[in-house]
């Protein structure tokens, strides 16, 4: 597999569609255990990402991710803005000047993104955050020579669903203590959409 500039742009397009399609689900989940703005904020952010990507001719994947990062950071706000912004910025830095991204490059990039997420949000695996989806996906990519995109989607889905049984230790949901159990973490759900979008786009390209 190689992720091309076109794949990267299609990935963001698909994520934009999914976020808008599931905006209300994301917001409802966030109303249950957070502050009820996750879907609204991400939709606003990815709408702006689409506008930005339409105006630029990209030569490298890193430039695509850099613009995604800067747009999300400046348009999303809340906690998800700095977190997704940091993730894409770290990926951009890890892939500097790459026109096409190999599996090994991508494994490094998502690992860097996960590190950035954990530093910025101070969350560990098991805290009921987006890290709980990123962590197993990053491991899956690292541990497999060839990515089976269906497997990657399934890994992300299991991880996302598993946040339902966790008690939140970070973010606003942590105030709910045991009452946070029984709801999927909204950031885990949006991260699931992110990886499913990638898997769909890459599978279609194969």
């Amino acid at each position: 597999m190689n992720i091309t500039v076109n794949n990267a742009i299609q990935w963001m397009k698909r994520m934009h569609e999914k976020v808008n399609e599931h905006k209300d689900d994301l917001t409802s989940l966030d109303q249950a255990i957070g502050d009820g703005d996750h879907g609204i904020n991400l939709a606003r952010g990815f709408n702006e990402v689409m506008k930005k990507l339409d105006t630029v001719e990209y030569a490298t994947v890193s430039d695509v991710f850099k613009d995604v990062a800067m747009t999300i950071m400046s348009k999303v706000g809340g906690a998800s803005g700095p977190l997704y912004g940091t993730a894409f910025l770290k990926m951009s830095m890890a892939l500097k000047d790459k026109e096409s991204v190999t599996k090994a490059d991508f494994a490094t990039a998502v690992a860097e993104a996960l590190n950035g997420l954990q530093q910025r949000g101070k969350a560990k695996p098991g805290d009921k955050t987006m890290v709980d989806v990123w962590n197993p996906v990053v491991s899956y990519i690292r541990d497999h020579e060839e990515i089976d995109w269906d497997e990657l989607s399934a890994t992300a889905k299991r991880a996302m669903e598993a946040t339902k049984e966790l008690r939140a230790l970070k973010g606003r949901a942590s105030y709910l203590k045991e009452r946070s159990i029984g709801h999927i973490d909204p950031g885990a759900l949006s991260s699931y959409y992110l990886f499913v979008s990638l898997a769909e786009v890459m599978k279609e390209g194969e």
């Binding site: 502050d35 703005d37 904020n41 950071m73 400046s74 348009k75 809340g78």
Partner: peptide
């Protein structure tokens, strides 16, 4: 001033 109940962004 961020969006309603949403933190403002670093650039602002």
């Amino acid at each position: 001033c961020g969006e309603v109940f949403t933190s403002p962004t670093p650039d602002q």
